[in-house]
Each structure stands twice: as structure tokens, then as C-alpha cells.
Amino acid sequence: MTALDELEIRVWRGAADGHYQVFRAPRRANQTVLDVVSWIQREADPSLSYRFACRVGVCGSCAMTVNGKPRWTCRTHITKVAKDGRLTIAPLRNLPVIRDLACDMAPFFEKWRRARGRFEAAISRDDPLVPISPDSLERRAADAAVECINCAVCHAACDVVGWRPDYLGPAALNRAWVAWNDLRDRDRSAVLRAANAGAGCGNCHSHQSCAEHCPVEINPTRSIAGLKRAGLLALLRGSL
């Protein structure tokens, strides 16, 4: 057992072939996992690499694996995850580790591009705005998925990404679902083709780990199911 006023933290050091290093940090009454990581870097080992920005759950850059689960460290209170005073902190799964707790996010965003998750306008800024009813099916479907802030927690939680690194994954496909439901896009069928390609939505096993771990409670599995449905209908209509 650790002392009541102390935490024992195993922190991943190095790249993919690294190891865990044990640190001891003071336990405070009000403390997040990110506070502990920052304390280690400032007080114990300045060479510790990690990534954060806003500290309040807006930017999505501080996600790490905490006691085996992907989480935003800034929004994870120590009392929630370290009841016995022990913590294991590792980089996110399914992404190349640069060093210590920092992952290379480039493959993650490359998948967004492959899924055609970007908006391409059908009209110019000089044209009148296209009215989209807030009650339309497409708008409501996009609303349910649009709040993603690209933290990669779902990507790290997905077993299929772990098995098939080329699989587009829940975040990119959730983004594609938003683009597919955006009636202002100039070529929505291109989104559907990209999302239904060989490494696309057909590979999802609906384990729902993405939905289970998403910090903003988006359900990417539902978005992926929507892409599967839309892809099948388009294939049957000959428009895929």
C-alpha cells in the first residue's frame, strides 16, 4: 500500500520499445491525472514528454492511457482512478509513440483525409445561404456526431484499429458521417465512396468501445452503422 498522502505512478518512458518508470508524487485533495503528470515533469524529471494545451476539456490534446483505459487526463480526477493510490499512465494505443506519453497524431489525421471528412462547399461565399432546417433528418444526424474534438480516445479504444492499422477508425468515420449529412457539400457521394472503401466502415464489429470511452458521449458506432446503411442503399440504387 502507498501512504495516504502519496501516489505511486508508473509512467511509460521511451518509444514503442520503452519501459515503465515508477514515480512518487504528493496526493492532493483536488487533483487530476494531468496535474500529476505535470508535477512529475516539473518536480521529478523535466525530460518527461507529454502533450496538453487547454487543461479544461476543450482542446482534446491530453488524452493518454490511464490504468488501461483511454481518457482525457485533464478531466480525470485522481479519486476516480487511483482509489488505492496507484496509477499507470501510458501513451494512447494504436498510434506511433514519439516519446514517453506523446503520440504521433499524423496517421490519425491522415485517416480523416482518406475518409473525405472535410467539407467542400457547393457554392461560393457570394451565393445566398442554403437553408437547412434544424428538424431535418440530416441536420439531426449531423448534430449528434459533430461535437468531436479529435482527441483520438475512440481510435485508441478500437480493437479493430489495433488489428488492422489501415482501418479508418471511429473518429474519421464519425466525421465522414457528418460530411455525408451536410447537404451543402458539393459531392456527398464521394464521402460515401471513401467511407465504404476496403478499409472503411464495413470493418466495424460494433464492439462500441468508441462510444463507451468517448469523453463527450458521441456514439461513433451509430455513425458507422449509418454509413453502412447509406452505402448499401447507394449500392442497391447503383449510385455508389
Binding site: 465504404n196 472503401a197 476496403g198 464495413g202 453502412k228 452505402g231 448499401l232 449500392l235 442497391l236 455508389l240
Partner: peptide, 8 residues
């Protein structure tokens, strides 16, 4: 998996 295999 392509959408054709998915359908099949």
C-alpha cells in the same frame, strides 16, 4: 471490407 462483400 468493401460494401459488395459486406452485402454478400
Amino acid at each position: 471490407m468493401s460494401v459488395r462483400l459486406f452485402l454478400a
